[in-house]
Amino acid sequence: MNSCPESEKIQALRSGSLSAEEARLMQSHIATCPACRQELEVETAIDRELALDIHAPKIEDSVLRGLKILGLAEAEDRGHDFYKYLLYAVLIVVFGFLIMPYLLHLPPLRIGQLFSPDRLRPLFSVFRSNLPVTIGIGFALLSVSLLFSFPQLRKVFEL
């Protein structure tokens, strides 16, 4: 940051990443180099300012008053989430299975035909003949459901 090439090492000296010998050499250089001494003083001034704990005003009472008015827990509102997700599910079914096929002029969907034994039999035989794959799929589904039970991830999807 200044004309002296050694000034590059000032950051390393401050962060303690120089070896003991390098640090000693750098300190003796700083003692004789006005440019590096100034750089070190600037860096120290910035550090001091950044580490300053700014005195906060008294807000405890006003927060408590606010909480009394609004109520403590937003979590109580979570009861509405069930109805929200139910609404989403209904909308998906209505749009995805009824309105969209109608708009796209697709033949009407017969749910019974979709899950008829004739259609499902080959699927089951595939699972029976590939047991390791089936177990693998089962574990993958289990892992996904466990992942979803982590609050952080769940929160991301809920948002």
Binding site: S62, V63, L67, L70, A73, E74, A75
Partner: peptide, 15 residues
């Protein structure tokens, strides 16, 4: 904003 942050935090503290 500090006031709002604490209000939001304590309303969501069960999360």
């Amino acid at each position: 904003l500090t006031h709002d942050i604490f209000i939001r935090a304590f309303r969501k503290i069960r999360d």
